[in-house]
Design a protein around this nucleic acid. Structure first.
Lengths: 205, 205, 205, 205
DNA sequence: AATGAATGAGCGTTCATTCAT
DNA sequence: AATGAATGAACGCTCATTCAT
């Protein structure tokens, strides 16, 4: 039998692509660069991916899948709405911000993603329904029509991501905790909900 | 080389470049594309700009200059801090968001901008000092250490910009007013300051 | 390498190659295309043939062998010269024209065939000697020096083949019978010999 | 002003392409080969032709145009039908056969030519109407239904061309005069028309 | 013996920049 | 000064063949 297709090579290609595409951009990265980075001949890259575009697309799709998996396990998981919102902020957001390379690529290629609307709707839906549950549990009337909800989610999420990205480019040291800090502040002053870090809650009470 | 003779041609090149770079990206736009779009021979482009990169750089620099001019005239202008903050939100932000092409380019090339840190500091400084004035005038103690201020400004500004950009790519219709609406809401609940549209204030009082 | 084990696989490869090489050309057909068409792994093709070129060469050689077998059985067979010439036209020519794929390949690769001269001489010899017999039996003096004979045979044979091939490309519906019809006409007016379809001759006399 | 587009370069490219495409085939000739043969950098070839395919297409189209120009000037020219048919055979056919490289390419790419039907109809029309005139002038009733006429023209024309091509590949020395000789013989025995070489007719009468 | 992943030279094409005019 | 044809390195990708399994 001939050699088996080697998943570790596929993953190595994706990892190298993530590094290079984030660092220098998709167009500025040649397949030859990629082949050098991953230490595999050019032809081999084409054994694992149909073309250069398929590499970014896989990166983006698997990235969203992973983010969605974390987000929905947290947003639809057990616990009351406050706890789940805390998890979104203290678990999901740091995971998101930890993969700055991937989100740089996702943002840079948003305009080429033809399932983007679907993804945003899904993302918006998950967070909106969590907010709605929170409103019900608190007997509050949140005045959040869809457009305002969309704007709010976008601003907090994309704002955190992009500020992190840009500040890193500028050599300014901001970290995930700075955004979490600000979002908690905003949530408290807007909704009167105090989000607590679930990992430290074990100790406090 | 680069002998600026006819300002209208120079501006036409920049305008065409803004359109094309925003629509298809810097790398995907050839100098020949640009020459076709602006209906000027390739050689002429090189009379006005040293090379392709100098075109984006000029676009980015003049864009920031224009944004700064508006922002500082408003932030350092006459009126009390509340009024000036209102102008930032109701005058500066719409101007910023109206030039989506330019900010797409600025964001996409942030990582190549070697004066980015300086710009962000200047931007942060302008807004931070306005916030500080607001605190003094209101006798409030805003707990806004530099990192939190940076995060806040980044989130609102970049969040608005990028949400607008991404939503447009996804075919979702959000407009500047949705972001203004959300930011006013946030400012009110965080600082207790009610921002009013200055254009309508003429009539109310 | 090239260990002929399973004759049916070898034939399947040749049949698939004939189809693809005729339809898209030798250079435009990849070994991978061929492997897909014949539903056999690439490696297996190399078990049956040393390389891609050996496949066309085999196709061409076996094609000529088959044509020669038919032609010489008919030209050297029983019957008087008129009957045998009729068989050449009514039996051999239709067989030749029925395998348009093969003759397309043979013609397209004529310039790479290093036994071409030998083949043409053999072909010319078979037909020339039949014509000579016909002359003797009719007590005619055919003025057919070798060059004229060569030209005549080439024109009728290659002319029929190529006109059929080209007309098919152009979507014009010409069939073997049109060429037989014309050749019979030419033979009658040139040599005064009436060629009759041997299959119908059973009935007529 | 910049350099002017240089027609002599365009022609040099076409001439080199004719040589190489005829000698080794279109697919087997790389653009780099062509650039070497014509002693012009690769990029320059793309200044004159959109792509490799456009080069053959130009070659084929301009080739047909030239053939048609000769053929129609001769077939529709002055003189009685016999004289004009003589010119077709003694003027047009030698011109056709003299450019063996070009006709090799035309034949090899017939299946990619999407105006082939149109060309064949035009060619068939020119010759058919000349034959019809000949019939009228001779008060003969030629029994040439379209399919038979098509077959006849194809056989003589393509047969001559392809026999010449193949015989040259095989190292057999046949020349245009051999085909002219055979065609005159066929015309005489089929139609009773004696074709005379127009260049020698000056002397004979 | 049978396989199909691996390979890398070579393909057709592009394009930022130069420079003869 | 203004031009656009010229350039050639570099691009993304293919594929006949090999060889580890």
């Amino acid at each position: 039998m001939a050699r088996e297709r080697d998943e570790s090579k596929r993953l190595a290609i994706l990892a190298a692509a993530k590094r290079l595409f984030a660092a220098q951009g998709f167009d500025a990265t040649s397949v030859a660069d990629l082949s050098r980075e991953v230490a595999l001949p050019i032809g081999t890259l084409y054994t694992y991916f149909e073309n250069k575009d398929a590499i970014v697309q896989t990166l983006v799709e698997e990235g969203w899948d992973s983010f969605f998996a974390t987000l929905s396990s947290v947003a639809n998981g057990p616990g009351n709405p406050e706890e789940r919102l805390s998890l979104v902020v203290y678990r999901f957001l740091p995971e998101l911000l930890s993969d700055l390379d991937l989100i740089s690529i996702i943002l840079a290629r948003a305009d080429k993603d033809d399932k983007l609307e679907e993804k945003l709707e899904r993302l918006g839906g998950l967070i909106s329904s969590l907010m709605a549950e929170l409103a019900v549990s608190r007997s509050l009337v949140f005045d959040f029509p869809p457009r305002r909800a969309m704007a709010a989610i976008g601003i907090y999420l994309l704002g955190s991501i992009d500020t992190l990205r840009v500040s890193r480019s500028a050599g300014i040291e901001l970290g995930a905790e700075d955004f979490i800090d600000f979002i908690c502040l905003s949530v408290r002053s807007s909704f009167g909900v105090e989000l607590k870090d679930p990992s430290s809650s074990l100790k406090t009470d």
